[in-house]
Amino acid sequence: MDDLDPVSLAVPFFILAIVLEIVLARMGLVRANYEPKDTFTSLAMGLGSSVAGLATAGVIFAASLWVYQHRLFDIPMTAVWAWVLVFLLEDKIYYWFHRLAHERRFWWASHVNHHTSQHYNLSTALRQTWTGGVAGTWLLWLPLSLIGFPPAMVAIQKGISLVYQFWIHTEAVGKMPRWFETVFNTPSHHRVHHARNPRYLDRNYAGILIIWDRMFGTFQPELEGEPCRYGIVKNLATFNPIRVAFHEWAAIGRDLMGARSLRDAALYLFGRPGWSPDGSRETSEQIRARWAAAAGAARPSPATGAETGLTPDVRSESPA
């Protein structure tokens, strides 16, 4: 069981599911938009992520084993309660990792490539990071080994989470039953997460359970009257996997070269994506605030019932 790798076991299913979605979409039976170059980029990013993961896997597992040697408790892998507990704890850690990866630029640089596709289909799930290991987000999972969960157990649960998240990258599935939408992450919830509409920016960070977003104020339901527009705020005009993987790191480098103070350098690196000292760029919060102000101004005046002419769907989005 220690050698179980849910992601490796699921790879054939991933490929078959993508092919099936393409075929069903061509037959007009499901909704799925595929663009050949975009799909190739996603597949290339997935392959590159696997190779990059091998380069850092030894360091990560060695660190986990070292922490486990200093564990506080002995938690058996054979206990059902232990799997339930590691599922809940790992899923909560994933939520905070995912939120950190959106709200702090250093970690956004390693995660942004997952959001660069302007299409949303099963192949998008494979558009994974090449630099996550270097960015060090794996450190967030080390406390699980310190508590006493065997590193192999943590790795298996992380794999289960990734496998689950594959199927939610689709437009072929509408909304699930209400009870399921209330508890679990679904295609509807994750479409919102991948959307660049101001209302939808930086929402629904869940891995498996959407309850964390509901608890911590980051939940946003998908609205019938506001279709998701996918991609990043300033979309890339390229399908080059190298640029997709490293464009934000390069942008950070340019900003650091032009920084006028240590404070500016620190905020360019660890501030919110879109931060700039002169306010010439916008963070997601600023984009959402501008959209909300326009939406409020577009409502009928209580006194006259007149419209201002502004639309609540702000199209002139700025880089973030």
Rank of each mutant, 00 (worst) to 15 (best):
A259T: 05
G48S: 04
M45R: 07
W66K: 14
P312A: 00
A298S: 01
F166G: 02
Y164G: 06
A265Q: 04
K234I: 08
L162Q: 13
S280V: 09
L9D: 09
A237T: 14
A298Y: 00
S42A: 10
V154P: 07
G309H: 00
R71A: 09
K175N: 11
V134M: 12
L140W: 12
E282K: 12
R203N: 07
R299K: 04
H247Q: 07
L72G: 05
V23Y: 14
R243L: 15
D3G: 12
V59Y: 09
M153S: 04
G48I: 05
R26C: 00
Q69W: 13
L139A: 08
Y205I: 04
P273T: 03
P76T: 04
P241M: 04
N204T: 02
T186C: 00
L29H: 13
G28F: 06
A135Y: 02
V80Q: 08
D278V: 07
A101H: 08
K37E: 14
W81Y: 04
L88W: 09
G58C: 05
V112C: 11
T39E: 12
Y34W: 07
L122V: 01
Y230A: 01
G136K: 03
L122N: 05
I22W: 15
T56D: 08
Y120H: 08
T131N: 10
S145G: 07
L16K: 06
A298E: 00
I252M: 13
T170L: 02
Q157T: 12
T116L: 11
G217F: 09
L100A: 11
R290E: 11
G28Y: 06
P143V: 01
T78P: 08
Q220K: 11
A172L: 03
H119M: 13
W275R: 03
L146S: 09
K92T: 15
I18R: 02
L162E: 12
M77S: 15
R214A: 10
